[in-house]
Computed example of a mutant assay.
Amino acid sequence: MNNKVLLERNGIRFTLCVMAAVSAVCALGVNQSVRQMNILQLMQGLPVAVGIGLAVGIAYYGTMRSILPRLSSLHSAELWAGLSWFNLSLLGTWAIVLPLETAQIDFIEGFAYAAGCARLIGAIYVVFGSSLSNRKKFANTFVMLTVTIMLVITVIKVSLALSLGLVGALSIIRFRTAIKEPEELAFLFFTVAVGLGFGAGKMGITLMAFWAVCIGYIVFYKIRSTSQMENAYMVTIYGTQPDLIARTGQFMSENGFPCEFTRLESGASSTHISFLTELDANSACQVLGQRFREQFPENDITIVQARSLF
Score class of each variant (00 low, 15 high):
residue 3 N to W: 07
residue 5 V to C: 04
residue 9 R to V: 07
residue 12 I to E: 09
residue 19 M to K: 00
residue 19 M to R: 01
residue 21 A to D: 04
residue 21 A to C: 13
residue 30 V to I: 15
residue 31 N to G: 15
residue 32 Q to P: 01
residue 33 S to L: 00
residue 34 V to M: 09
residue 35 R to V: 04
residue 46 L to F: 02
residue 48 V to E: 02
residue 53 G to I: 00
residue 60 Y to P: 03
residue 61 Y to V: 03
residue 63 T to A: 14
residue 64 M to G: 02
residue 65 R to S: 11
residue 72 S to A: 08
residue 74 L to N: 02
residue 78 E to A: 14
residue 81 A to Q: 13
residue 84 S to E: 13
residue 86 F to K: 06
residue 90 L to A: 12
residue 91 L to C: 09
residue 95 A to C: 10
residue 98 L to R: 03
residue 106 D to S: 10
residue 106 D to N: 14
residue 108 I to V: 09
residue 108 I to L: 12
residue 111 F to S: 07
residue 113 Y to E: 04
residue 127 V to I: 06
residue 129 G to C: 01
residue 134 N to S: 10
residue 134 N to W: 09
residue 134 N to F: 08
residue 136 K to F: 10
residue 150 M to Y: 08
residue 157 K to M: 10
residue 162 L to F: 15
residue 162 L to S: 05
residue 165 G to Y: 04
residue 168 G to A: 03
residue 168 G to W: 05
residue 168 G to H: 00
residue 171 S to N: 12
residue 172 I to A: 12
residue 176 R to M: 04
residue 177 T to G: 00
residue 177 T to V: 06
residue 178 A to R: 11
residue 192 V to R: 01
residue 199 G to F: 11
residue 200 A to N: 14
residue 202 K to S: 10
residue 203 M to H: 07
residue 204 G to M: 03
residue 216 G to H: 07
residue 216 G to P: 02
residue 217 Y to G: 09
residue 219 V to F: 14
residue 219 V to K: 08
residue 223 I to T: 15
residue 223 I to E: 14
residue 225 S to A: 11
residue 230 E to I: 12
residue 231 N to C: 03
residue 232 A to W: 03
residue 239 G to S: 01
residue 240 T to W: 07
residue 242 P to R: 09
residue 243 D to R: 04
residue 243 D to H: 13
residue 244 L to F: 07
residue 246 A to Q: 07
residue 249 G to Q: 15
residue 253 S to A: 02
residue 257 F to W: 15
residue 258 P to Q: 00
residue 263 R to Y: 14
residue 265 E to A: 13
residue 265 E to W: 13
residue 265 E to Q: 08
residue 265 E to K: 08
residue 266 S to Y: 02
residue 267 G to R: 13
residue 267 G to V: 05
residue 270 S to Y: 12
residue 274 S to Q: 08
residue 275 F to L: 12
residue 278 E to M: 00
residue 281 A to S: 14
residue 286 Q to F: 06
residue 287 V to D: 06
residue 294 E to A: 10
residue 297 P to T: 08
residue 303 I to W: 01
residue 303 I to M: 04
residue 309 L to Y: 01
